Simulated assay, not measured.
Amino acid sequence: MSVTPRLHTAGTAMLDRARGLRPLIEREAAAAEAQGRLTTPVVDALHEAGLFDIWVPAPLGGAELSPRELLDVFEELSYADPSTGWVVMATTLENGTAGAYLGDDAVERIFRGPRTPLIAGQGTRPGTAVREDGGFRLSGQWSFASGMPHAQYAHSLATVEGTVEGTDEARIFITPIEDVEMLGNWDVLGLRATGSIDYAIHGVFVPESWTHVATEDEPLRGGAVYRLGVLDQSLICHSGWALGVGRRLLDELVRYAGARAGRPGQIADSDAFHTDFARAEAGFRAARALVHQTWADTERTLDSGRHLDVREETMVRLALNHITWTAAEVARFVYASGGTSALRDGLIQRLFRDVHAGTAHISSGPRLLKECGRELAGLAQGQSWALFALE
């Protein structure tokens, strides 16, 4: 008789390690932005601290953090530097889901070394795959592969043509980086150090064990967190990222205002600023509380052996959308309050750009918010979530 996996928890060790890396990450952030990728000292330190293993299933030697433990680590790293938090959240998600869902042959190859390899890629815009004996022939071009300059494997979504009764099946394909053509077109407003380049794969054979159905939510290894499936797990990533960046923006404004206290005409003596700051702080804390309450509820569901129902799926999407756009509102307030100091090159300017780059992600788009409202209003009876829409 099979046993339903329980939710695995690992404690605060990984959070403590992430916090310990903050001085290094902050020192390297400007250099990383200039070169369009994380610096070697930061990547090496993240490896040495085990932070690329936080999502890897425990049976493979990973930490396998719970959703709220993951939130805390992503918040901490994103507070130190939004690009660093973004790269870690993207690669660890793909490392973890590969470990949970791929076949034994692939897992034994990928996770056999002393240092966990990084998997990076794109899971929202599919390529195409044709079934062949023992596997698939994969081709396509994908955009925004965060962390790809540091990766040893690519994670790519593709549709397999004519799989079942003339329909297409969406699958995730893991391929060695040697099979990837890097298109190197990374010139963007924010999150510059994520190295989220475009890439292409041209007719590469991928064995069956190196793939899994994109909607897979029953792990071959590991506990209940993997019953969320790839998409719902990705919502943890972006929620933790927004928590860290929003908090850092408010804290930087506190430092900016405090340094100007006592000077005539400065915001530190402005009643209007005091009022607006109170509103911004309350709004951010309320959005943060929604994220944590929602994921606490989710953890209880997972630990009980159930999958999320439609309302619970709605709430994890709504919590992400709300914290992301709350962080964007905070960024606009901080930027406006920072005057010419925010206009010049520096931390507030970079945070402002990074937040607005983050809001462009599909997981925080207006369609998702509309769909959440429709479900919450009781107007989606009998429908369920398919990616970011109700059907």
Rank of each mutant, 00 (worst) to 15 (best):
D251P: 02
Q141I: 14
A327G: 03
L138V: 10
N95Y: 09
H292R: 14
L70M: 11
G339K: 06
I236K: 07
L65H: 06
E391N: 13
H356I: 07
R285P: 00
S2H: 15
E76T: 07
L24P: 08
H356G: 02
I25P: 01
L157S: 02
R137G: 01
L231Y: 15
M148A: 11
G262I: 08
Q266H: 06
T97W: 00
C237K: 10
V56M: 03
L376C: 05
E178D: 12
A214H: 10
L343M: 13
H356F: 09
R353S: 06
W385T: 00
E208F: 04
F333D: 01
T175L: 12
R227A: 02
D217T: 04
G382H: 14
H47G: 10
T159I: 12
V130W: 08
Y335W: 15
S363L: 10
L65C: 11
G99Y: 00
H155P: 01
W142H: 05
V355A: 03
I323Y: 00
S270N: 13
A45K: 04
L51Q: 10
S364F: 03
L390C: 05
P59N: 13
R6N: 12
A158F: 09
M182L: 12
G246F: 05
I119Y: 01
T12Q: 13
H356C: 01
R137D: 05
Y226D: 04
L379T: 01
R317Y: 05
S2P: 04
T340N: 08
S2E: 14
P219L: 05
W295E: 11
G103T: 13
G147V: 11
L253S: 09
E329F: 03
H361S: 11
W210A: 04
T298I: 13
P57I: 09
W325N: 09
G162S: 07
E75D: 12
T97Q: 08
R131A: 07
A193V: 04
L228H: 13
A214Q: 04
V213R: 13
V3S: 14
R279M: 06
S384K: 13
I119T: 08
H356N: 12
